[in-house]
């Protein structure tokens, strides 16, 4: 997938700040995206992902900083840039009383496309909506609505696709379908920038920016991010997870990350802490089903980064 990424920059964000009154939604972030890249923005609600995407789309005016898209500066409502963007907003924003076909026709024609019928057919097939062309958009399921919204944002053949949490609230099957479509688009060379709260989705991107409180904590390829994170994750499985957690918290100056019946302890390479914890648990009669080092996940990295930020 990396092969189709060009060295040419399609989007560059430099020192972007955005304030809403006294609230700083985005605090001076910078990044660039190359043609053909799939760029993920991950972070909790209020991290500044949507604000950044809207600023890139020319829907918001930056308080500071500059955004360049297709080699030109993005200005609010700059139509020459906007017509080259495919944008899918966070919430369903199509016309519920218009049918699938009518929504697609409207967005194609409003972009000045006349010869869109063939593309419409292929988009309907790709999104598996071909059997529902006459159904009003409001009568579609959540996943189908999002796929229709995606089709509408693609009907005018954009050069960059900007997706704001496209799979939030979508069922797992539709989510998988959605990702299959995105993978296909990615392979066809379309530049995709998306925000998501799901870290497993972010792992599929070429590069990921971890957002928190309006800043980018880390930005890299997900695999490289894991390799170079500078810590190891020691996983302990136990049937009495709460007791084990309380015990570790009482004896060590850090908190384990809890995942179901497993505890993740982030440690420096070569640290003796895992042995000390295992000893502590067995000494206190806590059964350990399994233990060992695992590859850090993006979630581990994200949590560690936010903790470091708090500590800093």
């Amino acid at each position: 997938m990396q092969d189709s990424i060009s060295n040419k920059v399609i989007l560059s964000v430099s020192g972007l700040r955005k304030n809403f009154g006294t609230t700083e939604a985005v605090r001076g972030i910078s990044f660039t995206i190359s043609y053909g890249e799939m760029f993920g923005m991950v972070g909790p609600d209020g991290a500044g992902k949507t604000t950044t995407l809207k600023a890139v789309c020319g829907l918001l005016t930056p308080s500071e900083g500059q955004i360049n898209l297709f080699g030109g500066k993005v200005i609010r409502s700059g139509k020459s840039t906007q017509r080259r963007i495919g944008y899918l907003s966070q919430r369903f924003s199509l016309y519920g009383d218009l049918s699938v076909d009518e929504n697609l026709d409207f967005f194609a024609r409003i972009h000045g496309r006349k010869d869109y019928k063939k593309d419409r057919t292929s988009l309907l097939e790709m999104t598996r909506l071909a059997d529902f062309t006459t159904r009003p958009a409001e009568k579609l399921s959540g996943g189908m609505k999002q796929k229709l919204a995606l089709a509408c944002s693609l009907i005018h053949k954009p050069e960059i696709l900007i997706l704001d949490e496209p799979t939030t609230g979508v069922d797992p099957v539709s989510r998988r379908d959605f990702w299959m479509i995105l993978s296909q688009l990615r392979q066809e060379g379309l530049t995709i920038i998306m925000s998501t709260p799901y870290l497993d989705e972010a792992e599929r991107c070429d590069r990921v920016a971890l957002f928190n409180k309006g800043t980018i904590l880390k930005l890299d390829n997900p695999v490289r991010m894991k390799e170079t994170c500078g810590f190891r994750v020691f996983e302990i499985s136990t049937p009495v997870i709460r007791e084990a957690d309380d015990l570790i918290r009482s004896k060590f100056p850090f908190a384990p990350q809890l995942y179901g019946d497993r505890l993740h302890i982030i440690v420096e390479p070569g640290s003796k802490i895992p042995e000390q914890i295992l000893h502590l648990l067995t000494e206190n009669g806590i059964i350990v089903l399994s233990s060992g080092y695992i590859t850090p996940s993006l979630e581990n990295i994200f949590i560690k980064s936010t903790e470091s930020e708090h500590a800093g």
Binding site: C57, L59, Q82, S89, R91, Y95, I110, G112
Partner: peptide, 15 residues
């Protein structure tokens, strides 16, 4: 209210 104006904002349609 339905957010459709955002889609139109990111299109060639002028206000």
């Amino acid at each position: 209210e339905r957010g459709t104006i955002e889609q139109l904002d990111v299109s060639p349609v002028l206000s």
